[in-house]
Amino acid sequence: MILPALFFYLFAGVCVASAVMVIVSRNPVHSVLYLILAFVNASGLFVLMGAEFLGMMLIVVYVGAVAVLFLFVIMMLDVDFLELREGFIEYLPVGLVIGGIFLFELLLTVGFWVINPGVSKAITAAIPANVSNTEALGLVLYTKYIHYFQLAGMVLLVAMIGAIVLTLRHKAKVKRQDINVQNARTPDMAMAMRKVASGQGLSDADAAEWVK
């Protein structure tokens, strides 16, 4: 089975390379685009592991929403990223320490897994056989956990209402497009035929009516 291994190295390699590019690229827009590439490759890795639901969620949530939001923020706000990067050398030791801690924890986890492969089986729930994990989630989400699911929906509804209540302002001066009015327009309403005497042009009153 060479194919899965091939795909694994493809996805993993591109993922790591684009993660590096996120940090080193000078243009912040390029950084975000590399971030999206990293997400897509990570979701490919999830699919290889058989966690296709997580893979799809990664694309929908992180690529579809979060990364695009980042992109908007970067393009809308005029942030000088070179200025932000000024303290790079100063913060390097702290960053290295945190990175070292992460590496240590990663090694611990992998070490445990190597020493005793049974541990991960004991602490994770059994994966149902013959069911894809999207289906497995669907089987319990709308039946066993309907109560939580509906409540979470109500929480999101409140969040939506709250965002609208606190930010929406009806401005009277804003001109809005009303498609019904546009469709109902007749040539009589839109045009006026005037006989203009030569050398005089339209009077101001006519012009005012025209603008209206």
């Binding site: 409540l151 109500m154 929480v155 409140v158 969040a159 209402i161 709250g162 606190l166």
Partner: peptide, 8 residues
């Protein structure tokens, strides 16, 4: 659910 509505 209770608190989020209260904040608003």
């Amino acid at each position: 659910l209770m608190s989020l509505a209260l904040y608003v």
